[in-house]
Design a protein around this nucleic acid. Structure first.
Lengths: 203, 203
DNA sequence: GTCTATATGCCGATAGAC
DNA sequence: GTCTATCGGCATATAGAC
């Protein structure tokens, strides 16, 4: 029984339009009219698929959270830590380049105290981080990684990579480049990897 | 001629209330009524001091931007780079602890493409970063710092420190602590400094 | 499933008295 | 400078025909 092809349903179109707008203007800065216009459906038709604006917003966040945590799941104690972390930085920067809206939407939600995502935060995210903290601890214990608090390392990895999506405007204002520029993209990967892995102190 | 004492004018009270709310709910998520209530003034009285909600928002951003860039200004080529960067990380984390609202407001504005701050970004921020990039380049050239792109280093410093303000909810959800906890605060400084300066590769 | 029309409430800003 | 009253606009959501 072949799976139904990933048809671009109207629901998906609406979700995508909503992501574009919510991630830039926030829940309150976006009107249902705006989303409907961008998705090329009527407002009442949109409200047929999602019972309210907030329901649409929450549906979006839930869908994205899973994708968002995926790169971290790859960590396992058997891997070489340097390779694993290098690969992780590359993956997250690919996300920042290809799906900056997703990153921005999470950032918006976090800033506002994650009122609609707190439950997932306190459960799923917490669980994954705890598990992966264990992996990092094992790397440190086996002498393959310098002593570092796993939580703070994960925060540093998140922060340095998501920065290029969330603060993309600032990055562009300062460097004149975006991650869409292949040379700049590779230089970014290289520099983030070097800073996190090797630090900047001369030896 | 002694300066007038820093009297807490009504204008200041309004600005502070606005910061609290804007930084959490954004420009559109905050009503003038909300701000007025929190500042304990009437709505029309507020609109006597600020001609519109947007004017208030912009006034706030301009005031904060100056404070926000201050820690970076301290960088100078004569300093020892390790000490300068350690001090910088500490200062920024103090800001994240004591004024998380300011950090969040900037983050919000950046995510939205900085429509009301782009001019300042392209001028003042850009100028300061260019100047301090020169300092970092000098540190590298003189062999006191490992080779690193100055812009990416500045991004990494910003990202890792501001993360504790902007994603404070997530930090608390995962670690159970906030920067208000003195032990956690010192551990954070220590870990961020170590990651950026020494990296995490075992040698 | 999709549409038009509309009910309903909120919010920014102004008018004008004091 | 501060107040009360209110206008006008916009946005969410629903009703009900097709």
């Amino acid at each position: 029984m072949p799976k139904t092809p990933p048809a671009r349903t109207k629901r998906d179109v609406i979700l995508e339009a909503a992501l574009d707008l919510f991630s830039r203007y926030g829940l309150h800065g976006t009107s249902v009219d705006d989303i409907a216009a961008r998705a090329d459906v009527s407002k009442s038709n949109l409200l047929y698929y999602f019972s309210s604006k907030e329901a649409l917003y929450v549906a979006l966040l839930r869908d994205l959270l899973v994708l968002w945590m995926e790169p971290l799941r790859a960590f396992s104690a058997e891997q070489d830590p340097v390779e694993a972390i290098q690969a992780y930085i590359r993956l997250k920067l690919i996300n920042s380049r290809d799906r900056p809206e997703a990153s921005r939407l999470f950032c918006l939600e976090m800033i506002q105290g994650a009122p609609l995502l707190r439950e997932e935060l306190d459960q799923m995210v917490r669980r994954v981080v705890e598990e992966k903290s264990g992996v990092i601890r094992a790397w440190v214990a086996s002498g393959r990684l310098a002593p570092v608090d796993p939580d703070h390392l994960i925060f540093a990895l998140w922060a340095t990579t998501q920065h290029y999506a969330d603060f993309g405007v600032q990055v562009q204002s300062i460097t004149g480049k975006t991650l869409a520029d292949p040379a700049f993209f590779e230089a970014t990967i290289e520099n983030v990897q070097r800073i996190i892995l090797d630090g900047i102190v001369k030896r």
